[in-house]
């Protein structure tokens, strides 16, 4: 199935969780916050957040800023 992650189309396997996506992108989940279809998902819930075809996922973290 296909999702949109940070604006880019990505293919993921069926029954993938948000955590699976993060790991496949080689990201450290501790430092992330996610939005799935506009709803905030906190890091501890990444494993139980299952992805559906067509989901829009935003992975967000802190960067340098003034």
């Amino acid at each position: 199935m296909n999702i949109t992650c940070n604006g880019e189309q990505r293919a993921v396997e069926k029954n993938s969780s948000l955590n699976d996506l993060v790991i496949s992108l080689e990201l450290n989940p501790q430092a992330l916050v996610a939005e799935v279809n506009g709803k905030i998902v906190e890091q501890p819930k990444f494993t139980e957040q299952m992805l559906q075809d067509g989901d829009r996922v935003e992975l967000i973290r802190f960067v340098g800023g003034g």
């Binding site: 992650c5 940070n6 604006g7 880019e8 992108l25 080689e26 990201l27 450290n28 501790q30 430092a31 992330l32 935003e58 992975l59 967000i60 973290r61 802190f62 960067v63 340098g64 800023g65 003034g66």
Partner: peptide
């Protein structure tokens, strides 16, 4: 210190200020 929030740059995912 102030920090900003941004989408993860999926092409350069290892720049991590929290660490």
């Amino acid at each position: 210190v102030t920090v900003a929030l941004r989408r993860v740059d999926l092409n350069n995912p290892h720049d991590d200020i929290m660490q």
